[in-house]
Simulated assay, not measured.
Amino acid sequence: MSTVASSAIIHPLSVIEEGAVIGEDVKIGPFCRIGGRVTLHEGVQVISNAVVDGFTEVGRDCHIYPMAVIGGVSQSLHEAGEDSKLVIGERCTMREGVTMNTGTVGGGGITSIGNDCLFLANSHVAHDCRLGNNIILSNNVMLAGHVIVGDRAILSGGCAVHQFARIGRQAFVGGLSAVNYDVIPYGMLNGNPGILGGLNVIGMSRAGIERAVIHQVRRAFKQIFDAEGSVRANAAAIRDEYLDCPEALEVIDFICAESDRAISSPYRGKA
């Protein structure tokens, strides 16, 4: 039996399947379908002509626009109907045609989205992705499976991200870019194949990072990518120089962490 809060407003032309949990002040417009394992928390709005399905939890005050399909089964070739989840945080907006898939057992069983994220029309989040807070996916952005995106990252229109890639906090990816490799925190990547063009200095400034700190991160960037030797070895070699700069350490530790992908670089072929 479904649990529907007394303050919820549900259009009579929508279908709420048995077992769904509909919270206080939820609004569901016409021609929507809410699956039987879906939880919509307080204040969620599903505008019209949208589907929320699967084992899916949508946080409070999220907005889901027409033609979005949230919680669809993964498109993985290994999908066999196992139990898996999609968990979306609070105050996220999924615009027209957005698709988000549940996880897979082989990938941890969960696709997770943080708070205050904006997904513009026709963007796609595949199985087992993990997204932080305040992220923007512009129109037609495509995340393959197992992608990790850090807080405040911005992905511009039409860019495509390879499976298992990581995009660091506050990185910026330009429109139509191909993200084949990991993108460092504060990095700015453009092109196909994607080339690391430097630091997202504007984004760092807007986030309140002081100019002196930005200069330290830029200095570390040059030491890592301009010196002889591999990027990971260069990063490890300078770590002790930046113990007093958390932002630079974040970049260094991101590079030195284990990953299925190489690191995006200003110079193709160097990893």
Score class of each variant (00 low, 15 high):
Arg211Tyr: 02
Gly157Cys: 13
Ile148Asn: 13
Asn180Met: 08
Ile209Val: 13
Tyr181Arg: 15
Gly157Pro: 12
His124Lys: 07
Glu228Tyr: 00
Arg169Asn: 08
Ile209Gly: 07
Asn133Thr: 01
Arg152Leu: 06
Glu228Phe: 02
Leu137Pro: 01
Tyr181Glu: 15
Ala153Cys: 13
Arg130Ser: 12
Ile184Gly: 13
Ile184Tyr: 00
Arg166Gly: 08
Ser112Thr: 15
His146Asn: 11
Asn134Cys: 06
Ser123Gly: 05
Ile202Arg: 10
Met204Val: 10
Asn122Thr: 10
Arg211Ala: 10
Phe221Tyr: 15
Val183Gln: 07
Cys159His: 05
Ala126Asp: 08
Val213Gln: 02
Phe119Cys: 13
Asn192Trp: 00
Gln170Tyr: 09
Ile154Ala: 14
Gly114Asn: 06
Asn122Ala: 14
Asn190His: 13
Pro185Met: 12
Glu228Arg: 10
Ala126Ser: 14
Gln163Glu: 06
Leu189Ser: 12
Arg206Asp: 00
Ile135Leu: 02
His215Thr: 12
Val213Asp: 03
Asn180Gln: 13
Ile135Asp: 00
Ala178Gln: 14
Phe172Gly: 07
Asn134Met: 06
Gly229Leu: 07
Asn140Glu: 07
Ile154Leu: 04
His146Thr: 08
Ala220Lys: 10
Val173Asp: 10
Gly174Ser: 14
Glu228Ile: 01
Leu155Ala: 11
Val147Ile: 04
Asn139Arg: 07
Gly198Pro: 04
Gly145Asn: 04
Ile224Gln: 05
Asn115Arg: 11
Ala160Glu: 01
Val149Ala: 08
Gly203Cys: 06
Arg219Asp: 10
Ser156Glu: 14
Val141Met: 02
Ile209Leu: 10
Phe164Pro: 02
Ala207Thr: 02
Gln216Ala: 06
Ala212Asn: 04
Gly229Thr: 09
Ser177Gly: 11
Asn115Val: 01
Gly168Asp: 11
Pro193Trp: 09
Val179Thr: 13
Phe225Lys: 04
Ile135Glu: 00
Ile195Arg: 14
Gly114Leu: 08
Arg218Met: 12
Ile148Pro: 02
Val141Asn: 03
Ala144Cys: 13
Ala144Ser: 14
Leu120Cys: 08
Gly175Glu: 09
Val161Phe: 01
Asp116Cys: 07
His162Cys: 05
Met204Thr: 10
Ile195Thr: 15
Asn180Asp: 11
Tyr186Thr: 14
Ala171Ile: 08
Phe221Glu: 05
Asn192Ser: 15
Gly208Gln: 07
Arg169Cys: 10
Val161Asp: 11
Pro185Asn: 12
Gly208Ile: 06
Leu143Glu: 11
Ala153Gln: 09
Val161Glu: 13
Ile113Met: 06
Leu143Arg: 01
Val183Ser: 07
Ala171Cys: 09
Asp151Thr: 08
His124Tyr: 12
Arg166Leu: 09
